[in-house]
């Protein structure tokens, strides 16, 4: 790493300006308002210290939304990363890659609102295509969205459908960056396919896997649209997530202070969850 010069300062300037202008104020606003009782609609504001946080921690629904969010993140991210990685390794060599690559991208490209609504239609108990197809193989219709036990899983499935391609792409790309000759020399020494996978491929994929884990964890913690469209957070509390909770308090009741307090907590939780990857990402960017 070299010492900075005029050029680097000029290079950094635009980005720093954008961050200073567009993110510093909003971030400070969020942190400061979390200590206020702020009713945005009525314009009332008063300093209440940590009361927003106390109220938040006393509210059952907040804990339920936290539990749902964490289940959602863990299951969805694990499924996406496992599935995406497995598929990438499977398709890295041999036929069909190009076809798959183009087709599998589509779910990522469609507008989220239409995606959610199409799934809602497919999940419909009476008219939905999924129950109809299940009927063909003799499976009784399933209450995908209206059963308290299944609703969250159904939404996880749509998330996995939409975002596994992202994992697949990134992992595939880094697989293709692994030089062929490593495998060749390994097979010279008599390594079989599973040994290659375990001792060469996976270790080399580690940074990429960490990256997608981090990105997916951050994004999945903020999942909102799918719940909003598919179940409205119900039935009961079954699909209430933190972002939904923040949205309701912030934009339906305009308890702005309370809602920002909840988002600060969310940010802390995300950091807690991703501290391991965050550290690694920061470290790698230091090393070079």
């Amino acid at each position: 790493m070299r010492k900075s010069n005029t050029m680097t300062h000029i290079f950094l300037l635009p980005a720093v300006v954008v961050f200073l202008v567009l993110t510093v104020y909003p971030l400070l606003y969020a942190v400061v308002t979390s200590f206020y009782e702020l009713d945005f609609l009525k314009g009332d504001i008063s300093f209440i210290g940590l009361d927003n946080f106390n109220k938040l921690f006393e509210h059952d629904v907040f804990w339920i939304s936290l539990r749902n969010t964490i289940i959602f993140v863990i299951v969805a991210v694990l499924m996406e990363v496992l599935l995406g990685t497995a598929l990438a390794i499977y398709f890295n060599s041999g036929k069909g890659l190009k076809l798959i690559r183009t087709a599998i991208l589509l779910p990522m490209l469609l507008p989220p609102i239409t995606v959610a609504l199409t799934w809602k239609m497919m999940y419909d108990y009476e008219f939905g295509i999924i129950n109809y197809l299940l009927g063909w193989i003799g499976v009784a219709p399933i209450e995908w969205l209206s059963s308290s036990n299944l609703a969250l899983l159904s939404i996880i499935i749509t998330d996995v459908w939409q975002w596994t391609p992202f994992v697949f792409l990134i992992i595939l790309a880094s697989l293709q960056a692994i030089p062929e000759d490593i495998y060749e020399s390994a097979s010279v020494f008599g390594a079989n396919a599973s040994q290659c996978l375990r001792y060469i491929t996976l270790p080399l994929l580690k940074p990429a896997i960490i990256l997608v884990l981090l990105l997916r964890t951050i994004d999945t913690f903020q999942v909102f649209e799918k719940m909003y469209v598919l179940t409205g957070g119900g039935p009961g509390n079954a699909t209430e997530t933190i972002t939904f909770y923040i949205y309701r308090h912030g934009f339906r009741y305009f308890e702005t202070g309370y809602a920002t307090a909840a988002s600060i907590v969310l940010v802390l939780i995300i950091i807690l969850f991703s501290i391991f990857y965050l550290k690694r990402v920061l470290k790698t960017s230091n090393l070079s």
Partner: peptide, 15 residues
Amino acid sequence: LLTRIFPPVTFVIPL
């Protein structure tokens, strides 16, 4: 990293 982690909903009012 931090700006990426903040939920966009939080930024609506100040922005």
